[in-house]
Design a protein around this nucleic acid. Sequence first.
DNA 1: AAGATAAAGGACCAAATCGGTCCCGTAAAT
DNA 2: ATTTACGGGACCGATTTGGTCCTTTATCTT
Lengths: 148, 148
Amino acid sequence: MLRISKLTDYGIVLLVHFARETKGATLNAREMALATELPLPVVSKMLKSLSSAALLASQRGSRGGYQLERNPAEISVAEIIEALEGPIALMDCVAGPGHCDQEGHCSLRTPWQRINRAVQTTLREVTLADLAMDAGPGSRPSPTFALA
Amino acid sequence: MLRISKLTDYGIVLLVHFARETKGATLNAREMALATELPLPVVSKMLKSLSSAALLASQRGSRGGYQLERNPAEISVAEIIEALEGPIALMDCVAGPGHCDQEGHCSLRTPWQRINRAVQTTLREVTLADLAMDAGPGSRPSPTFALA
DNA sequence: AAGATAAAGGACCAAATCGGTCCCGTAAAT
DNA sequence: ATTTACGGGACCGATTTGGTCCTTTATCTT
């Protein structure tokens, strides 16, 4: 359906929350669930994913939790999506060899790749910082982001 | 997974085949299945969809079949995707009201809409004609298309 | 050292979606 | 009439998604 999954969306919401906190703040799953009003098990699951994708750093044990691994301005939406649901490939055939039955006689691959790259570029130009800034009526995000 | 569905992909393959035929040619489901090496039931199904989406014109009865309703250069990839799988909405919340639980207190909607619009624009700028031209090494598609 | 806290890593399951087939009705040509 | 082909479905198995839960491991506090 050409959508990112709901879980990925949750993941981004979580990251945005981190980006809005005072830099380097450590928050645990329970706190995040509270803040985002998302069910704890889901939050927990996604934080784990984000952590193993190295977008969040984790600290175990009492007083443990998660914090952003990098600066919000250096984390693109593309990267988040890729971390949570694999390579961005609008159609099977650009996901790599062996995905498309028609691989031999298909002349659409090159154009597909171009389209895919264009979408990737769009997603790569929007950062977590862009998402985190409160989008009030007068706010102006980064230039590339504003072009749409 | 951020993919168009396989069925949609098939639909585009079919349209591209029409675009490559001599203008206005009428082809029936059997012929299309043969030409694309796709299973007949699938081809049949997709042709029906494309027809009810007014991308193809249909002719019933013996000697019937389908033909392109419009010029390939006037049919965008975005339009095809929208016809086959509904509005392009990368995330639920931009698909319309009532889709997102967080609707009230979600500050991500505006940025999402921008991102979504950017992707839409990309997809709207590539036409069936772009896809239909044989993408040999030296070929040069339309400017916007080439930028990726 | 003991206990509490919190992440890591899975297993697991229901529900939705996807990919694909098939059937029956209707329209048009011969 | 008969044949051809589209129209509109129903239908079904397989996969993916969304979400919960449990056990293990690591770390902090006392």
